[in-house]
Computed example of a mutant assay.
Amino acid sequence: MQYPFVVYAIITGVLIALCSSLLGVTLVLKRFSYIGDGLSHVAFGAMAIASILNITNDMPLILCITIVCAILLLCTGQNVKIKGDTSIAMMSVGAMAIGYLLINVFSTSANLAGDVCSTLFGATSILTLSKSDVVLCIVLSAIVILLFTICYQKIFAVTFDETFAKAIGTKVSAYNFLIAVVTAVIIVLSMRLVGTLLITALVIFPGVSAMRVCKSFRSVTICAAIISVICAVLGLFVSILAGTPVGSTIVAADIVAFGVFSLVGYLKKR
């Protein structure tokens, strides 16, 4: 804890874990789990564009492109000709392919394979987190948590019964739009820690684990947040001590937690 990069990693990991778990419960219950995977591939394509343009601070560009694609996914998902899962798959595969193509054609890096692997699976070292990354993470995480707290009742209604929510005057489209944008923000925040291919696990596993034991929406959300934060901190410390990749270690901790909670849920039913 005496080293700044360790403190940066813990702050970032805790905030990302907390935000992803809060929204992850809603995404799982609305069966939007795959949207996280789709947007993470879009973020990879955006990072490739930033790389070939030699943009040092690429976070704003990646964030803007990912948010725009989240809005497009929401709009095309309501199109009767292109269903939601189809549009996500098209955008996901297309962004990944175009991003990798651009990196190969225009990249000047001497270690192309290492750069791509680091982007897909997360940085192999927590030394890559800068002070500006931590500040941006704190600001965006605070916004996400504040929005979730303020809109909790509306998100709850939209998650379980959109028809009833619309009948009582809730602007369902607006809150679905909010969920999509917040998801995009969380995806971009998570990229440097766990990589584009592992972000979905960070969003899904804590919520699914909590559902093995808890029943109400509030209890599942709180339990998922606790699980996610504990797994993130545990994964970070194991990664520091054992020298393992940060993202993979955190996801492994989430998988272990899922196994434990599944066992507890099974014993409770018995």
Rank of each mutant, 00 (worst) to 15 (best):
T56E: 12
I250Q: 09
G94I: 04
K166M: 05
F205P: 00
L61W: 13
L72A: 14
S40G: 07
L236F: 10
V68N: 02
V80K: 07
I65F: 10
L129Q: 04
S216G: 04
A201M: 08
A174R: 09
L101V: 07
N57E: 12
L101N: 05
T86K: 05
N57G: 02
G94Q: 01
I82D: 03
I35R: 12
I62A: 14
S107R: 10
Q2D: 15
A17R: 06
C75F: 11
A123V: 04
D254S: 01
S132W: 06
R31S: 13
G259N: 10
L140C: 06
I98L: 13
S51T: 14
T124L: 12
L63N: 03
I82R: 05
G247D: 08
N57S: 14
A110V: 05
C214W: 00
L101I: 15
Y100L: 14
I230V: 15
L129F: 15
V251W: 12
N57A: 07
S190Q: 07
A70K: 08
A252P: 00
K215Y: 01
I11D: 03
G169W: 14
S141M: 05
I138S: 03
I227S: 06
D85S: 12
I88M: 10
D161T: 01
L120P: 10
Y3I: 15
V256D: 13
Y175K: 13
M47P: 00
G207S: 10
M59T: 12
I35Y: 04
R31L: 12
